[in-house]
């Protein structure tokens, strides 16, 4: 079989629809997982009673179980418990919960570099613990944790391909679905690999811009 560019050109609209869904699901999940990360890390660092133990349990659970099992649990299991989410939101929820656990650890690592001195200084100026976290600790932690947060976000983007398993028509789904009908395996997988690569590089580019901006105060 030869590499058939005309075939790819034909399938391009379908691939772009898949790409658009991949971008939507990933972007939403990245934003939500960072939010989860910030909240979870705050709870851990401020040692909110009881809740911090729940956060620890959540992180351990997510990190020690396969993403696919979590995804199936959310898609097929939750309806049995009375929560039926659409394909899209099942996907967003599973990616958010998965990446959120890692973001908690990433941000917590960053928070540990924010010393006791800054905490005392913030408190001595009358800031509440919450404002200290929001205005001082979180921005500093994000700066330090940015490389690992980016890694998690890239993994999230790549792992969005798992969502094909529940039938969400994202990029990988489109490829597998077309392959199962047209058997243009080489063309399709090559195409989606190139697209994923472009997505990851774009994400890295924006992250490095953000990192540059966040590091401005530290360049003298």
């Amino acid at each position: 079989m030869e590499f058939d560019l005309a075939y790819l050109a034909n399938q391009w609209p379908a691939l772009m629809r898949g790409l658009w869904l991949t971008i939507q699901v990933s972007a939403l999940s990245i934003v939500m997982s960072v939010t989860v990360g910030l909240c979870g890390a705050a709870i851990r660092v401020l040692q909110v009673p009881v809740v911090d133990k729940i956060v620890v349990g959540y992180v351990e659970f997510i990190r020690n179980t396969p993403l696919l099992a979590q995804l199936f649990f959310i898609f097929y299991g939750l309806p049995g418990l009375g929560l039926k989410l659409s394909l899209f939101w099942s996907g967003v929820l599973s990616l958010t919960l998965w990446a959120g656990a890692y973001q908690i650890e990433n941000i917590r690592g960053g928070l540990e570099t924010v010393g006791k001195g800054l905490r005392e200084a913030a408190f001595s100026l009358g800031l509440s613990p919450w404002r200290f976290f929001r205005l001082i600790a979180a921005p500093m932690a994000v700066r330090v944790g940015l490389p690992s947060m980016l890694n998690t976000s890239i993994s999230l983007l790549k792992n969005s391909s798992y969502l094909q398993a529940i039938g969400l028509a994202e990029l990988t789904f489109v490829a597998i679905d077309r392959i199962s009908m047209d058997f243009r395996t080489v063309e399709m997988f090559a195409a989606i690999c190139v697209i994923y690569l472009a997505l990851v590089l774009t994400l890295s580019f924006f992250a490095s811009r953000l990192e540059y901006r966040l590091n401005t105060p530290f360049r003298t």
Binding site: G117, L118, E120, A121, A122, F123, S124, L125, G126, S128, I136, P139, M140, R143, L214, P217, F218
Partner: peptide
């Protein structure tokens, strides 16, 4: 305490300026 701290300032050994702010 939080209310009181707005009325009593404090200066530390290690300055403790917020490094990410001008």
């Amino acid at each position: 305490w939080q209310a009181l701290r707005t009325e009593i300032g404090m200066v530390f050994q290690d300055y403790a300026l917020f490094p990410h702010l001008s």
